[in-house]
């Protein structure tokens, strides 16, 4: 029997098909690492800016996947965390604090606190009510920033420049910011991958699938859901820090409810509960925006059609589609 246990332990996790092997991951990482150089050589420097934006929203979508995909909590206010993270940078910058070593922890901490308070209230509800209440909190944060005249209000708040790291101007250039975002995204992906497979992640997934069963074996789902909500909020806050730095500008528009909706689209399009899927979903959505907007002002119509097609063809989103193709090959 002990050999059987050992075999179980060695058995690959169920979602391995969705998570490509280490070789593929290494290949993607290498390709991304070469992108700024290649884009420069090809005379297409805007590609670096677009790719950075994709990865920033990929980070935000990744964090939402922990809540939405692994916790079955449809949060419709996730953009609020991006906005709060961005404003943490903007407001600190306005007071002369320009270092990431201060900005990033303050942003993550503020977002974690906001998530703790709003999550503790929102998570008393489920389903449509949870969607509504997270939407309401998101809108409250949005209108708070709109009315915050001291920090630009509706007009937004320009930064004095990009943040420094330990006093060094490391992310001044676009390629440098690109590598910084790539590093943060990779780290977040690796950390969350461990989190969802951990004891905590297992309880979160179990509560998603059958909360009554979990109670019957002695788990109350609430503390686990709330913890996931706080982790996701803090990570989305870091995405906000990066977004503020890319634009060198902070605006309430980052946290509008349409933004929250787009984040949900990214997660669903990429594949809920797959981590890497939502990152791909974010990249795909931004790429589609760029390409389709090039052809027509009514590009959202084309986007809608594609979304319908992906959801109908594969419940697992792009990641599910890839896994299906992988199995057939």
């Amino acid at each position: 029997m002990s050999t059987l246990v050992a075999r179980m332990a060695a058995a690959p996790p169920r979602r391995r098909a969705v998570f490509p092997g280490a070789a593929l991951a290494g290949l993607v990482l290498a390709a991304l690492a070469a992108l700024p150089v290649a884009a420069e050589a090809a005379g297409l420097p805007f590609l670096v800016v677009t790719a950075t934006r994709m990865m920033i929203f990929g980070l935000a979508a990744l964090s939402l996947d922990l809540v939405l995909g692994y916790g079955a909590m449809v949060s419709f206010g996730h953009a609020a965390f991006i906005g709060l993270g961005a404003y943490a940078v903007g407001i600190l910058d306005a007071h002369g604090i320009r270092d990431l070593a201060v900005q990033a922890p303050v942003a993550a901490g503020a977002c974690a606190l906001f998530a703790l308070v709003t999550g503790a209230i929102s998570l008393r509800t489920r389903g449509v009510y949870f969607i509504m209440i997270t939407l309401a909190f998101g809108q409250m944060a949005y209108f708070f920033m709109v009315s915050l005249a001291a920090y630009g209000g509706d007009d937004g708040l320009p930064l004095s420049g990009r943040s420094t790291l330990f006093g060094m101007r490391l992310i001044e250039g676009d390629p440098a910011l690109f590598y910084c975002v790539l590093a943060v995204l990779t780290a977040a992906l690796l950390v969350l991958r461990r989190v969802v497979a951990s004891r905590f992640g297992r309880v979160l997934r179990g509560s998603r699938d059958n909360a009554v069963r979990m109670q019957a074996i002695g788990f109350s789902p609430l503390p686990y859901r709330l913890t996931a909500y706080v982790i996701a909020g803090a990570i989305a806050g870091l995405a906000g820090v990066l977004l503020a730095n890319q634009a060198e500008f902070v605006s309430p528009a980052y946290m509008s409810w349409q933004r929250s909706g787009e984040l949900i689209v990214m997660v669903v399009l990429g594949g809920m509960g797959t981590l890497v899927g939502p990152v791909v979903g974010a990249a795909a959505l931004i790429a589609l925006e760029e390409v389709l907007a090039h052809y027509s002002d009514h590009w959202r119509l084309g986007l809608g059609l594609m979304l319908v097609a992906v959801v109908l063809l594969s419940r697992g989103g792009l990641a599910g589609l890839a896994a299906k193709i992988g199995r057939r090959a």
Binding site: A9, V195, R199, P223
Partner: peptide, 21 residues
């Protein structure tokens, strides 16, 4: 999962649960 519920904290975030012998 039922064993996990009564043996130790489940607020553990990094070690893969599937390999807890």
């Amino acid at each position: 999962l039922a064993v996990q519920a009564r043996s130790g904290s489940s607020f553990r975030f990094f070690r893969p649960a599937a390999s807890e012998t």
